[in-house]
């Protein structure tokens, strides 16, 4: 691969191709039964790894979630559990 001078990236949004979820140790699992749709997990996620679906349910994008656990910590209804990643 030829690199641009000064590491300049000329294609906007190309960072999406760089999947950064690989170093996760714990994975957030959302229990939608307990979810009160407050949006705290979506707001506090330091990446943009939580999305709100059309049906009002929240989903984790595991391609980018690094398992920091902030969503689980912030959830007021304890609807998110951090589960150890095992192969």
């Amino acid at each position: 691969m030829k690199v641009n001078i000064a590491a300049c990236i000329t294609e906007p949004g190309s960072s999406e191709r760089n999947k950064t979820g690989g170093w996760r140790v714990f994975r957030p699992v959302i229990n939608n039964e307990r979810c009160i749709d407050c949006g705290s997990c979506w707001i506090f996620c330091p990446d943009a790894s939580i999305t709100r679906e059309e049906n009002g349910e929240y989903k984790v994008n595991l391609d980018f979630c690094k398992g920091c656990g902030i969503c689980a910590n912030e959830c007021p209804s304890e609807a998110i559990e951090m589960v150890l990643e095992e192969k």
């Binding site: 001078i5 000064a6 590491a7 300049c8 990236i9 000329t10």
Partner: peptide, 13 residues
């Protein structure tokens, strides 16, 4: 390459 909102680039990546 220059910073220009019309043609977004990332510099110093």
């Amino acid at each position: 390459h220059v910073l220009d909102p019309e043609q977004p680039v990332t510099m110093g990546s």
